[in-house]
Simulated scan of single mutants.
Amino acid sequence: MLQVNLLPGAINEIMASVANSSLLTQSDRYGLMAAILDESITEEERRSVDRLLRSVLRGRIKVLS
């Protein structure tokens, strides 16, 4: 089974990067996947991930392939 580990500070770094560029890269997506699978992230981090995903759904952030 594949183990995915979230790097410390990764969510904040992804949020800052996306806020500057309005682009979600493949590595950002892997970081978000790790965050979603990580049961130890804080409620604030989980809300940040949720906001980011809602922005993608609303078309405010472009997903790069």
Rank of each mutant, 00 (worst) to 15 (best):
M1F: 01
M1Q: 04
L2T: 11
Q3Y: 00
Q3V: 12
Q3T: 04
Q3K: 04
N5W: 00
L6Q: 01
L6S: 02
L7F: 02
L7C: 07
L7A: 09
G9M: 04
G9S: 09
A10L: 03
A10P: 00
A10S: 05
A10N: 01
I11N: 00
I11Y: 00
I11T: 05
N12T: 02
N12Y: 10
E13G: 06
E13W: 03
E13R: 06
E13L: 12
I14L: 04
M15H: 08
M15N: 12
S17N: 06
S17C: 08
V18F: 03
V18K: 01
A19I: 02
N20A: 15
S21Q: 12
S21E: 05
S22Q: 08
S22I: 01
S22F: 05
L23K: 10
L24R: 01
L24K: 03
L24E: 03
L24I: 06
L24S: 00
L24Q: 00
T25N: 07
T25K: 07
Q26P: 01
Q26W: 06
Q26G: 08
R29S: 13
R29W: 02
Y30N: 10
Y30V: 09
Y30I: 15
G31Y: 01
G31K: 02
L32G: 12
L32S: 13
L32H: 05
M33Q: 07
M33D: 05
A34R: 04
A34I: 10
A35Q: 00
A35E: 05
I36D: 11
L37N: 03
L37A: 11
L37D: 08
D38E: 04
D38P: 00
D38G: 05
E39M: 12
E39T: 15
E39Y: 10
S40F: 01
S40W: 02
T42W: 06
T42R: 10
E43R: 12
E43K: 10
E44A: 12
E44R: 07
E44K: 09
R46K: 15
R47T: 13
S48P: 03
S48L: 11
V49R: 04
V49Y: 09
D50P: 02
D50E: 15
R51M: 13
L52I: 07
L53H: 08
L53T: 14
L53W: 00
R54W: 04
S55T: 02
V56N: 13
V56L: 08
V56T: 12
L57W: 04
L57N: 12
R58T: 15
G59W: 03
G59V: 10
G59Q: 09
R60Q: 13
I61A: 15
K62L: 09
V63N: 07
V63Q: 13
V63I: 15
V63H: 01
V63D: 07
L64M: 11
S65V: 09
